[in-house]
Each structure stands twice: as structure tokens, then as C-alpha cells.
Design a protein around this nucleic acid. Structure first.
Lengths: 226, 226, 226, 226
DNA sequence: AATGAATGAGAGTTCATTCAT
DNA sequence: TATGAATGAACTCTCATTCAT
């Protein structure tokens, strides 16, 4: 296991070059997938020579992993940013999902790159999902403590939410309205309103705290809605 | 629209060889992913010469697509089979998910192959998901007509269920209990009970028909909305 | 040098099969050239299985050589046949060339196969040319003895005639009138009249016996040097 | 109409490598023919790695076509160069043919490569012949205008000359004196004198302007129509 | 006599990576 | 810091030939 060494630039010019390469890589990976994303393509798009690539990255895999991390950081940022202004849990949830879909629309790379990561870099893949899930878990635990949601296992529910977001994103953001043909590369269409509402309603019903009156006058002992 | 040039085998031996290759392909794709699943690896595992491969398949892509179709057929079969004995919708749903997870455990290829299909064969990928979703949709429409579930959009919910199944399957079947290291190739562990229960409960709450008494002042006791 | 063994058929059916293969080979070689003329293509066109081929021929090279021999026999036959009715040398020459061009038009294989033979089977190539040349030589020697042509070296002139026939055939029979695009496979167009006349006139001038009166002081009246 | 993707070399080293490959290709094609001239053989002879080949050429076919063009340029250059010092048409013609045979002796590739081009690249083949023919045509038209040759069709005669040169070159330059066995690869023997004289005499008789006095009663003594 | 499945060497080509400049 | 020429292992695929049936 050769240690992957970071190769930080030391000059302004270097920093710019490095960024150019990462940016190029995002597009190339998104468009061709890992296997078909050749270094030539990346460097050509970045406007540098092939050799230059290895001044900043150890290998193709290295950029890939760094890119996954980068995108991961950015989605999570977008999600918290999006829901930061929310005053209720429900509002926050909606804003978070909206931000997620918007990010997916703007950065299809996230999606495609992550799905391929299964074989390319399981480590990166797991990190990616785990980190997002951790965010959900934190929110869910807080909500549960506040009695905002029912008695759920935050860990499990977090993964469930992750799955919903991913599949709906793939279906409606990446594929577009017509499942037959994918939207062009520049498309930034997001999930249609009614789909979004259906999804959120689904989630809300699933999370909703049991109505306090359920056990009020006619307590059904042992009734556990789980 | 290019038709396959290869003719189907006409002898017993040929049929056996073809099957051996497809079987080998399933394992190799599952283990290495499409890009790294070389023809050499596949034929070596199948115990035939490299050239033999091309007697039955036009290209690596062809086997891939055929394999996806094959696995798709088999999961769907497993799922309907599994839920065939169920008497209530709830029971059927549980059995269907169980079958899905069990299949995933036994055929990790399904999972891995499909996730990589994004770039390899978008067509195959879409077919796969769409077909499974169609099954869900049919069930949901029937349930809604019977008043078994609330007023949901079956199409959207179907994709949501698909997403849940896929993510939970990945997390607990493929990764195993410890997210750090994947279970060995031969592992057939399935989703832990408590996770399964949590997931099913989540889904049930989300699908449940709204309780009729909600807006009335005379709650009908014993009304079980599930 | 493994001896190429003939594999003659012993039954009627066998004879038919063998012929079918040779015929198919002529077309396939003519259309694709030696290198791209696969055994599969030949046997498919002949309507037999691959293995059957080796019942009648030792190898791809064997059919090729036999085909060259066959075609050679046939052009020569066509040429002598054509000029058999001629009463003068000039007439015979014209008829011979006409027959040659006609054969080329009907059997482009001759042409193409021979040109490729340079590398495939030098032996066959040389045999082919040499045999045709021998015919020319015989005619020229006879003509010289009869005083019908000047004092030429029959051997050299024979090769020259061969070259003329081949190049003109290629240019006007195989390429057609427009050098830009070759005529379709079925085309049997031959050399245009005026080209034919030019070529024959060229040859006649070159062969003509020097007029006896030129250097003598007693012109022999009626001497026609052509 | 697909443009070559390879960029021309920008450094001295690159230029040298490219040349080394073309040179190697010339020899390998000449020795083995197109079909058997593998990239391995070419690169091995050039002393570079296989991959290097593709830095400069898109494919085997590309080098082939470039080589044909290159050789074509060079024969034509050699021919005009050779006949440049000539003072009479006859002298020029002889010099041109001599140059052609000499070139053939030194570059057997020209010959072999062109004959195989029929299937490999008809376009290149036609270009090659057409360009040489154009040179002949120009000369013949000039000669005819000057009354140096009879009333011939320059186009037809040009192809005829082409055919003579090619066949004689093949017979006496490439095959050597003994038709049984080709001369070694390094052989630079050219057409034997007496053959050359016979060929030129043949051509001269065919081209000679008809003697003006032919129909007069006062033969101009010493006029030799050859 | 005929089949057609099987072979395996070898083809052309790509590409991550190295290195001299 | 940047270049771009060079590498060579690995890939997919073809095909003349063999052989059991």
C-alpha cells in the first residue's frame, strides 16, 4: 500500500494549474466515466501537457479520490447552507433535499463519479456516503430528542433517505422527464414540483411523530406503529 | 440497430459452453467491474479459450447487456415468487423486500453491474430500473384501488421504494455489518432483522391510508389503517 | 517445404462441393483480396461448413494457387480461342487482346488475385505471367520467321505486350471510364473502342517489319510491312 | 474525410523518430507486403516501442498511404531529374526510363507496395499511377506539338508506357536475370542493356512520326524510322 | 462426406506513467 | 514549473486450422 502523497503547489501559477486540472477532471469524469477518462483528455481540457499532471497528482486514482472528496464537501455544504435559514424541521428537510437536487443538476459528476466509485475506490465511496449519512443522523437525533419525529433508528432512516435522494435524483434530474433520453450535458433541470411534493410527503408521513391523541382516550396498549 | 452476428449454438456442447461463459462473466463483472473484467479473465474462469468467447458474443458489451437482462429477469422472478404466498399487502411487501435482499446477497453482481452500467450501457441500466419499477407501480395501483394505501402517485413512490431497496442493500448486504470492510465474495449475509424492521416500518407509515377518523369527531375504534 | 497434397473428391457430391468452394473463393478473393478473404467467408458463400473446406484443400494458400492456375488456364484458353479464327497476324493480335480484356471484365479476380500474388505466392505469380508470355513468344517467333514483324527479341517484346495489356486492362476495364470510381462488381464494360484502336496502332507500329525498300535501291513492290 | 488526429512533431527528436518509422515501414512493406507488415516488425526495425508508432500515425493504413505518396514523389523527382539534361526527346525518354528502373532497383518497395495497394488503398493506388501518367502526358503533348511524335492520343499512350515500365521493371529488376528466384533484398541490379535497348526501340518505333516522304517518290536516304 | 465447436497465436491499438530537456 | 516524446503492458478481437461427432 504505497502512501498517496499530496503534491501541493508552491507558487501562484502552480495553484492555478492544479485547479485547472481538477476542474477538467470533474468534467471529463462526468462525461466519460472513470475508465474512459484518459489523462490525455483531462490535460488537454486543462490546457497543460501530460507530464504536468504528475506534478500535482500521483495517479489517475488520486485525482479521482480528491475529486470525490471535493464534491462531497461541496454537496454537504450546499445542503447545510440550503437548510440553514429554515425554522422548522420540515422546512429544513425540504430545503436540504432541494439543495441536493440542485447540486446534482449542476454537478452530474457527483452522481456519475460516485456510482462508478464502487470499483474504482470503495474507500472513497464509503466515505462519501457515510459523511452525508452522518449529517442526516445528527439532524434526526436532534429531531427525535425534540419529539419532532417518531421513535425511529436514525442510522437506518438516514440511509433510507440517502437512497431516496439518490434514486429520485437519478430518475428526474439526470434522466430528465422522458426516461428515454438523457438531458444534454448543460441541462440543469431539477425535480418537477409534483414529484418533489410526493417525495417529501412520503418522507413526512414516514417520519411523523405518532399523533399524541392516538393513545389518548382509547389507549391501545402496546401499539407500536413500527 | 446492429443485429448480433453470432448464431445460437445448435449442439448440447455449445449450449453448455455459452452458459459457462455467462456464469463466469457474472462472477468476473461482480468482482472486478466492467472495465477490469477482461475477456481473458472471463474465459479463463469459464475454462475455454479466448476465441471461444467470440463464438457466442459479439463483444464484451454484449455479454454485459445480456447479463443485466438475465439478472433483472431473475430478481423480478425472485421478488414475485417471494411475495406470491402473501395474503395481505403488508405481508407481500415484506416478502418482496426480503427476496430482493436475499437475491442481492447471493448475486452481488446485480448490484455492482447495474451501478456501473451508467456509463457502460445506459440503455441496459434504464431497462433494469424501469422494469422493476413497473412491478412496484402495478402493486401500488392495485393497493390504492383497494384503499390499502393512501392517495399516492404510484410512479413516484415506486422509484422511492427502488431507491430505498438499493441503498439499504448496498449498506447492509454488500458492505456487511462493519462498514469498514466488505464481506468476502462468498458471503450471503442479508440485512439484519432490526434494520429490516425499521425499513419496513418506515415504508408502512409512509404508505398507510390516512385514518378515516382523523377529521371526524367520532373515531372509529379498532380502525387499523394498515 | 511441406508438399501440397491434392485432395481429389471421390464421389459426385464431393466434386460438386469442391467446385462450389473454388467458385466461392474466386469471388471472395476478387472482392476482398487474399488477406481479407477469410475461410469463413468462402465457406459461407459456398454453403458448406468450415471444416468441409479442409476436406478439399490443404490451406488457404492452396486454393489461392489452384485458383490462379485455373484462371490462368482460362485466360489463355480464351485468348487462343479468340484469335483462332484470324487469318492474318494483325487480326490474331487484335482478337487476342480483345479476348484478354473481355476476360478481365468478366473475371476481375484474375487481375486482383494476380496483383496480390506478389507476396502471397511468388511462384504462382511467376507461373502465371510466364505462361502467358510463352504464348506471346511463340506467336512472335512464328511471325518473325515469316517476316511479319521486324527483328525484335520475342522474349522482351512479349513482356512488353503483357505490360501493356495489364495496365490498359486495369485502367479501362477495372476502373471504368471515370478513374474516380470503380465500376460495380457486376460490370462487364470493356475497353472503349478508340482506346483499343490507339493501343493496337501503337503496338503495330512498334512491331512492323522495317520496310525493305528503305535501304535498298530496288524497292520490292507490294511489300506491306505490316 | 476524417482528419488525422496526430500532431506533427515539434522537436528534433520527434522528427527523427517519425522518419525512422517511415523508413522502417518502407523496408518492411517491401519485404513482407502490407498484410504481413505488422506494427511490431516496423517498430522493431525502427528501434522504438510499439506505442511510439501511434504518436505519429493514426494507423497502419496511414503510414502506408503516406509511404506511397512519398515514393511517388520521389520516383517522379528521379525521372524528371534524370531526363533534365537531355537535349532531344529520344534522349529524354531513355533517361526517364533509366531513372525509373534505377529507382525501382533501389526502392523495391515502390513496386511491391503499389501492386498491393489495389485492395489496401485504391485511392492511393490511383493517385500514384495518375500522377506519373500526367507527367508522360505532358511530355507527349509537347512532343506532338513539336512534330516529334506521330498523331497519338497522349493519354492512352501514357498508360501504355506506364504498363511497359512496370512489367519490364518487375521482370528484370525485381526478378533478376533468372526468373526462378528473386534477387536478394539488397540487390540493385537494373535492366540488362540489351533488354533496355529492345524496349526503347519498341517504344521509339511506336511513337515515331510518320515519315513525310513515305508517300513521295523520292525517299530521303538515311532516314531511319526507328 | 460433412459438421461446427474449439483453439490460440497474433493482430492493431490505447493509455497510465516516466523522464530527458 | 512545464513540456511532450517515449514506453510497454494490457486490452479487445480475428481467423486459419483441428478435431470429436
Amino acid at each position: 500500500m504505497t502512501e498517496s502523497v499530496r503534491k501541493p503547489p508552491t507558487t501562484k501559477r502552480g495553484t492555478a494549474t492544479r485547479k485547472a486540472i481538477i476542474d477538467a477532471a470533474e468534467h471529463v469524469f462526468a462525461e466519460h466515466g472513470y475508465a474512459d477518462a484518459s489523462i490525455v483528455r483531462i490535460t488537454e481540457r486543462a490546457g497543460v501537457a501530460q507530464g504536468t499532471f504528475y506534478l500535482y497528482f500521483d495517479s489517475k486514482l488520486t485525482v479521482f479520490e480528491e475529486l470525490v472528496e471535493d464534491l462531497n464537501r461541496r454537496v454537504r455544504h450546499a445542503m447545510t447552507e440550503g437548510s440553514s435559514g429554515a425554522t422548522t424541521r420540515l422546512e429544513g428537510e425540504r430545503a436540504g433535499f432541494r439543495a441536493f437536487f440542485a447540486f446534482t443538476a449542476e454537478h452530474p459528476a457527483l452522481y456519475r463519479v460516485v456510482r462508478e466509485a464502487e470499483f474504482v475506490s470503495p474507500r472513497a465511496l464509503k466515505l462519501h456516503y457515510t459523511r452525508i449519512v452522518e449529517g442526516y443522523v445528527a439532524n434526526l437525533e436532534r429531531a427525535r430528542a425534540a419529539g419532532d419525529v417518531g421513535d425511529i433508528d436514525p442510522e437506518v432512516v438516514a440511509w433510507v433517505l440517502m437512497g431516496i435522494g439518490e434514486m429520485v435524483g437519478m430518475r428526474w434530474v439526470l434522466w430528465g422527464d422522458e426516461p428515454g433520453h438523457a438531458p444534454g450535458p448543460g441541462s440543469t433541470a431539477t425535480v418537477p414540483d409534483h414529484v418533489f411534493e410526493q417525495v417529501m410527503a412520503f418522507i413526512e408521513r414516514a417520519l411523523a411523530a405518532p399523533r399524541p391523541d392516538t393513545s389518548s382516550d382509547h389507549p391501545s396498549p402496546g401499539a407500536d406503529q413500527r
